[in-house]
Write a protein that binds this DNA or RNA. Structure first.
Length: 499
RNA sequence: GGUCUCUUGGCCGAGCGGCUAGGCACCGGUCUGCAAAACCGAUUACGGCGGUUCGAAUCCGCCAGAGACCUCCA
């Protein structure tokens, strides 16, 4: 681990859904981490719910990198095989359906929404993964895995479709260990299909589906012209790029069953062993007491959030506000969307970022009257404890008080400590939490603007000297009105551009 | 119906047996021509009822309410 902060003796601990407990993270290969996260099905705009896993695992990615690991982060794009309604035999592929409705090619649908997804992620300062494989680009590998599963006796063909034989699998391995259920319960509680099913049992899931005539997305195979089942892609692409054993598999909690359970079954059936060492699941974002989901129709898209274009939004919220909002809760807790909460995050973030900026203005003294080591230690202890970002942020705010006190002159800091403090804040705020200054473009745009504002500040100072408060206030108020905020400090006037 | 989880102050959110996070809002003060910002201070909590314990927001039981998964969902 090579970083300048000497993370105390504490290990990095993560909560493993498989064991339902916190475990010390030990990579499979020394110094390297293989990370796979379920990405979006690209058939419509990304919404606030999508921001959660992507920011959570971006935090993980960034933190592991900070700790000195070489991380290979694989996040897939589901662009085929995700059925609208798996219970109905007539279930239509989500992307095919959208293509039919919009009268465009399925791959146009995919491209369009993949582009917006990427754009939104960039806005949220989510780093792109190392590899972003698409299901449609791995049809052959998926067919190979199906064959392997069938050859081992855990799959069967019926009318050109292939299904996974859960009962058979359960005899040799245990089905349901991730989501904590056993097959007997599933048997008694699964809705029975109305007799027409090709499946032996209702809880069997599709590995390959024969395409109905109107189904546009189709590939030839030894069983039929068809398409792969949804769960298959992740089993295939994770092992293809990360190996038959890799460290961490992440995703939303709602994917635990059946998606991840089926992944385990498929990989185990074909390879004879499990592939994932740590399963991590982020919790959901709720709105009006209910999970935000596309299928429930109660979602707010990221674009709407950023522009304020939704009836439930009192205003627009910047990408960094959204990011900070999400980081202020632990990733395994539910969180509630509300305008008040978002506005609180917005202000809190501003306070934090102002303090980081203030660090640049601070002048060092002979010696320090403040102690910064405890804050650093507590902050990293929190991050080491299953990525407890809210606690880490709380300690960052403790430091904000210190920074402001130094600025105002009530406390002093040595040159050495100042360098240390700056480096700490830059690492945690920018590199690990992935926050960034949002107004830089506006502000930097403009030596011209800067000159003009300085001129107005001068004029106002003159007015103030003449006790012409009316003019002074007019300049300040009018600038405020167009989004330029003036702050009279002891050392002069500061200004900044507000959104 | 089955499995599981949650209920913290005006709002959001930590906490996982004693040392009572943090942010936002509100109130008082310092600073300021007035503001803003900043700082200092105050005030509000652990769904209800029992139990275990010297001690419980934290453990156990019951009750109430909310949610998740069991179909697609991040």
């Amino acid at each position: 681990m090579s970083n300048s902060f000497k993370i105390m003796n504490s290990d990095f601990i993560i909560y493993n859904t498989l064991s339902r407990s916190k475990e010390i993270f030990k990579p499979f290969l020394k110094g390297k981490v293989g990370l796979y996260v379920c990405g979006p099905t690209v058939y419509s705009d990304s919404h606030l719910g999508h921001a959660r896993p992507n920011i959570t695992f971006d935090l993980l990615y960034r933190y592991l990198t900070f700790l000195g690991f070489k991380v290979r982060y694989v996040r897939n794009i589901t662009d085929v095989g995700h059925l609208e309604d798996e219970v109905e035999e007539s279930g239509e592929d989500k992307i095919s359906k959208k293509a039919r409705l919009e009268q465009i090619e399925p791959m146009e649908v995919v491209q369009k929404y993949m582009n917006t997804f990427h754009h939104n992620m960039e806005q949220l300062n989510v780093r792109p993964p190392s590899i972003e494989p698409r299901a449609s680009g791995h049809i052959i590998e998926q067919q190979q895995m199906i064959e392997s599963i069938v050859n081992k006796g855990f799959g069967y063909e019926k009318n050109g479709s292939v299904y996974f034989d859960v009962e058979k699998y359960n005899e040799k391995y245990k089905y349901g260990k991730l989501s904590g259920r056993n097959l007997d319960d599933i048997k008694t509680n699964t809705r029975q299909l109305d007799g027409q099913s090709e499946k032996k049992n209702s809880f069997d899931f599709a590995l390959w589906k024969k395409a109905s005539p109107e189904h546009i997305m189709r590939w030839p195979s030894k069983w039929s012209v068809g398409f792969p089942g949804w769960h298959l892609e992740c089993s295939v692409m994770s092992t293809k790029y990360l190996g038959e054993q890799f460290d961490i598999h992440g995703g939303g909690m709602d994917l635990t069953f059946p998606h991840h359970e089926c992944e385990i079954a498929q990989s185990t059936a074909s390879l004879g062993h499990e592939t994932v060492r740590y399963w991590m699941h982020n919790n959901m974002i709720k709105i009006n007491g209910q999970k935000m989901a596309r299928s429930l129709g109660n979602f707010i898209t990221l674009e709407e959030l950023f522009t304020g274009g939704h009836a439930m939004l009192q205003k627009a919220y910047s990408p960094m506000t959204i990011r900070f909002f999400i980081l202020q809760a632990h990733y395994r807790s539910e969180m509630d969307f509300s305008n008040e909460a978002l506005q609180a995050s917005e202000k809190g973030l501003e306070r934090l970022m102002n303090a980081v900026k203030t660090l640049n203005d601070i002048v060092a003294s002979e010696s320090s009257t403040v102690e910064i080591t405890p804050i650093k230690e507590k902050c990293f202890t929190a991050l080491n404890d299953d990525l407890n970002s809210p606690i880490a942020i709380a300690h960052l705010f403790d430091g904000v008080k210190i920074i402001n006190s130094i600025k105002s002159g009530t406390e002093k800091i040595s040159a050495e400590d100042l360098i240390d403090l700056k480096s700490f804040y830059h690492s945690v705020v920018f590199d690990i939490l992935g926050l960034k200054e949002e107004n830089e473009a506006n502000k930097g745009e403009s030596e011209v603007l800067s000159g003009a504002v300085e001129l107005l500040i001068d004029l106002r100072q003159q007015a103030k000297t003449n006790k012409d408060w009316a003019t002074a206030d007019k300049i300040r108020n009018d600038l405020t009105a167009i989004g330029i905020e003036l702050k009279d400090g002891k050392t002069g006037v500061e200004w900044n551009v507000k959104r």
